[in-house]
């Protein structure tokens, strides 16, 4: 029988962690792009667009991510699209991320005082110009901390992709457990790896939040 050393376990988990990082980055970047589109709908002047964006956000915030993954995985194949766990996971996580980011950013856009809208409108700026030159730059300052904070949720969310068969850190830990019969060690190391990925982001977000809070108090 083959013997597995701790280093074997750690090395294989580290290799699998690359896929957790890749999936997180994909979901976060694409989710950010889609989220920006949803944000524009959510704060637009057209009521229809606002309602549609609100429904979109409610749908993805109001159902479990695991269900969304299942629906993406099984639903895509019904549409005749080639389904791989990677594609389904990336799609579901992107949509899920976009809904949360849109809602986070909405709060930040609405935190920009109304007067700024009126002032820029009085300078004859169009809606997109107002957003581009006046509102978003100011909202951006406030968004950074919660956005980084949410990236932690995305990384943790990728763990669910293991359930539809995408081999990232969590799936790898199950596979390695089945090979080594050392669940305690393997899952502890896995948890530590997730912690190593997430904690710096949490701490960074927390520090930015405090800095911004301090700036507001003075």
């Amino acid at each position: 029988m083959m013997e597995f050393t701790l280093w074997d376990v750690v090395r294989n988990l580290l290799l699998a962690a690359r896929w957790t990082i890749a999936l997180s980055l994909t979901a976060f970047v694409l989710g950010g792009v889609v989220g920006l589109v949803v944000l524009f709908g959510r704060v637009s002047k057209s009521k229809r667009l606002r309602v549609a964006a609100m429904g979109y956000i409610e749908l993805f915030q109001g159902t479990p991510l695991l269900m969304q993954l299942f629906l993406a995985f099984f639903g895509l194949s019904l549409l005749g699209l080639p389904t791989s766990p990677w594609f389904a996971a990336a799609l579901a996580l992107t949509l899920w991320t976009s809904a949360f980011l849109a809602e986070i950013w909405r709060g930040c856009v609405e935190a920009v005082p109304r007067g700024q809208w009126e002032a820029s409108a009085s300078l004859a700026m169009g809606y997109l110009q107002q957003m581009r030159y006046v509102i978003l730059p100011q909202a951006l300052r406030v968004t950074i901390a919660p956005t980084i904070g949410f990236s932690v949720q995305v990384i943790k969310g990728t763990a669910l992709a293991s359930i539809i068969g995408f081999t990232e850190l969590s799936k790898a830990s199950t596979i390695i457990t089945n090979a080594t019969f050392k669940p305690f060690t393997v899952y502890a190391v896995t948890a530590l790896l997730y912690f190593a990925l997430c904690w710096p982001l949490s701490a960074w977000s927390h520090r930015l939040e405090r800095k911004l809070g301090a700036a507001h108090r003075h």
């Binding site: 932690v152 763990a159 669910l160 359930i163 969590s170 830990s173 669940p183 896995t190």
Partner: peptide, 16 residues
């Protein structure tokens, strides 16, 4: 707060 629920669950159920 910095580890996924899935891994917490697996650690408790399979690890403990």
């Amino acid at each position: 707060r910095n580890t996924p629920f899935l891994i917490q669950l697996f650690f408790i159920f399979f690890g403990l």
